[in-house]
Write a protein that binds this DNA or RNA. Structure first.
Length: 284
DNA sequence: AGATCGCCCTGCTTGC
DNA sequence: TGCAAGCAGGGCGATC
């Protein structure tokens, strides 16, 4: 599933292959792919046609492309299984092709949104004063953003009455962290997922944040070099980073630090992987 | 208002 | 063999 590093790879691909091009005809092939565009698929297609696309931006797992009026953006989220592909015109439709964006130029390629499970989608939104699509104004900056406010993050952790993994996944506190990288960062920091955030010292939260950045930068270093092709994104696989994972998906396998078998716990309708020795649960 | 939980979706895997 | 249940999980909206 695409996480922040994969989304950044997509952003770079859009910057290279799509920026500056003028949209031609748009086909919405599945209504759920534009469900966040409240005016509907026909309105989406009509408003997008004829506009010139700017340079793609990203916050967390959200992508957006400012339109030439600078007041509106094309917003995208890949969800669980979404892909943005630049394909030659006339290439066979993908099985789960949801939206086709043609261009009014002679380049010979088109942009396709392909999404098997339709958790993702595209939509058009007005921008806020700082150029952010209004619908994602509540999304916090991500840890790779130079303007991420580490002190404010720590303060928020101390004030919240919640646990550390919930906090990592809370997009209003920090964006871009999904289940995989949350488990990876917690393992590196030797923190149990149920540790109350109010008990984290400033150095410990700084260490955790550093691990979050490290795992994401490592993934970006691996995946960020493979986009240099016609395809904006070829990440249909569940992650080129899998071989480097220390926690996620490693139930019953030895901890890479101490050798203790890793465990999986059902958690919030998903799973948490952790080392029972390195990551001791908090006292009840 | 902060915190929690259920739901959306499809394809692969597992179990009876 | 065939069907059903389980699982994957980001984000939003309803609820307390």
């Amino acid at each position: 599933m695409p996480e922040l590093p994969e989304v950044e790879v997509v952003r770079r691909g859009l910057e290279r292959w799509v920026a500056g091009r003028t949209v031609g005809e748009v086909d919405v092939l599945h209504p759920r792919a534009v469900r966040r565009h409240l005016a509907g698929g026909a309105d989406f297609a009509a408003r997008l046609g004829g506009v010139r696309l700017g340079t793609a931006m990203r916050r967390g797992k959200y992508l957006w492309v400012p339109l030439d009026d600078a007041a509106t953006s094309l917003l995208g989220h890949l969800g669980m299984s979404g892909q943005l592909l630049v394909q030659p015109e006339g290439a066979p439709d993908e099985k789960h092709l949801r939206i086709r964006i043609r261009f009014d130029d002679a380049v010979g390629t088109e942009l396709r949104f392909v999404d098997q499970r339709t958790f993702g989608g595209l939509s058009l939104h007005e921008n806020t004063a700082d150029g952010l699509p209004d619908i994602i104004a509540h999304i916090a900056r991500d840890p790779l953003d130079p303007a991420f406010d580490e002190a404010a993050f720590h303060t928020a952790l101390r004030l919240r009455r919640t646990t550390v993994k919930r906090a990592l996944l809370d997009q209003s506190l920090i964006s871009g962290v999904g289940n995989i990288y949350a488990d990876e960062a917690l393992w590196r920091a030797r923190l149990h997922y149920d540790r109350p955030t109010a008990t984290l010292t400033r150095p410990k939260s700084a260490e955790l944040l550093g691990h979050v950045c490290d795992v994401m930068n490592a993934a970006l270093a691996q995946g960020g070099t493979s986009f240099d092709s016609l395809y904006v994104n070829v990440n249909g696989e569940s992650g080129y980073f899998d071989r480097s994972l220390d926690a996620y998906g490693r139930e019953d396998q030895p901890c890479n630090r101490c050798g203790t078998p890793m465990r999986r716990r059902a958690w919030m309708n998903r799973s948490s992987y952790f080392c029972p020795r390195c990551q001791r649960p908090p006292r009840a």
